[in-house]
Write a protein that binds this DNA or RNA. Structure first.
Lengths: 236, 236
DNA sequence: CGTGGATTTGATACGGGTCAATGAGGGTGG
DNA sequence: CCACCCTCATTGACCCGTATCAAATCCACG
């Protein structure tokens, strides 16, 4: 990279964005620059809809900073959150491989910076760099595996436990007295993620607090007092 | 292919096997033969376990003839069927991209003929034929999309409807008075596929019969009298 | 420090699970 | 070819967990 490259050098920002992404992990420097030139950046404010269900997506989109939720809406307006995407995750691949509308809506949960690569560029990339195809395959296979696990008859209690563990891992900060977790979603959002009623989430959290497993700090934070209790698959 | 090639020519059988599979759809004839030589065939009798959950799978496996179910078992022994694979479907890809144990058990529902391609050969293939990688990506993406759809809070009624439609499409035969569907699973199996109790499936089927939507013919066959009623998403 | 939206708590209804008893199918041997 | 038997499927009675509706309370923000 040229010595003249300063803190605002767009090319460097682009490469930065790419280096966060596992699927581009093993690109050579020159390839990185070639691709970086094709990348389109978008900044999206918190709360705005990035893509509505039913729209065509003709680009793969990588989350550079911020959080994005993917959700489907049933006909009575109930929301089902399918994924929470954070830094380094990608979405929109469905539209690249199938000529179909987006299966879910994408919405910025925070202010977000996105990197987009359009279909033709991405497909070129897959053809010239088989390792990237392998990385994407690996990522999709992992996502598939995660969904398979949530399928079927797990009890609500264990799904709540799993959700708390997921949040603890992604958003937790070590602290005196336990892990402090800033929740990325409201109770309503958590309910949509779990596919249950808002009130049920409250009740489950209250019970966990009674059991001394967690402690609520306002509405947006939770302190995890007994991590092992969450990991214990008491019921499944 | 050589003129001497007779009806038992193994190479031709192999190519036959491969041509059924979408992921090998656009292989050139010569590539087809190269790969065909690497393929291992297995014949597996009905009811036998092809791969136990926890085993390592180091091959991708393609179903040539027959049906295979993929299922997970909870600790109390309850079965959750994750996939039903038929002719042309493939499985075992998870083990190729992740160094992990198989997430589910694979069991032959009928006598089955399988084609297997081992990890190294398959990965070579992906690298030399980017289009195959694209095909696999497409297949996985489609599978992912199907799982996403079943996620969350759909009512049991609509899941039963969806299951009947799936079976009607895959296993139905047009016939006077409606589609005749030979069920690939017992009530118990259907219950495991839906993640509900055996008795509940009976009750839902009975209700549909009362409503004049289906008609049971013995235990293994169902006649669909009102296809539109199944497609109507009355409740979701 | 008050206000409004979010959350929690309580009361009740309903869907599906479980257990138990009954009924139907289809293979086998007489 | 028919009757029998064993297994699978159906039906009924009851229970538990979660949804729903309603009310009270909390928290964040101005």
């Amino acid at each position: 990279m040229p010595l003249a490259c300063g803190p605002d050098c767009q090319l460097c920002l682009d490469k930065l964005c790419m280096q966060k992404v596992p699927i581009f992990a093993d690109l050579a420097r020159e390839d990185l620059e070639t691709i970086a030139r094709r990348i389109l950046h978008r900044s999206v404010p918190r709360g705005s809809v990035i893509l509505s269900a039913g729209d065509r997506a003709d680009a793969i989109t990588i989350v550079n900073t911020g959080k994005v939720k993917a959700s489907r809406y049933s006909e009575d307006g109930k929301e089902q959150i399918v994924y929470l995407f954070s830094e380094g995750d990608f979405f929109g691949e469905h539209g690249l491989f199938h000529d179909e509308a987006a299966p879910y809506q994408l919405e910025a949960l925070t202010d977000v910076r996105l990197c987009q690569l359009f279909r033709a560029d991405f497909q070129d990339l897959l053809k010239t760099h088989p390792n990237i195809a392998l990385q994407v395959l690996t990522a999709l296979s992992k996502r598939l595996h995660a969904l398979e696990k949530t399928l079927g008859s797990q009890s609500l209690d264990s799904r709540v436990q799993a959700l708390l563990l997921e949040f603890a891992e992604k958003y937790g900060r070590r602290q005196a007295g336990g892990l402090l977790v800033r929740l990325p979603l409201s109770r309503e959002g958590i309910a949509s993620y779990l596919g249950v009623a808002r009130e049920t989430v409250s009740r489950k959290f209250s019970q966990l607090e009674l059991d001394g497993v967690i402690r609520a700090i306002g509405h947006k934070n939770i302190q995890i007092l007994d991590l092992d209790a969450l990991k214990a698959n008491s019921k499944f």
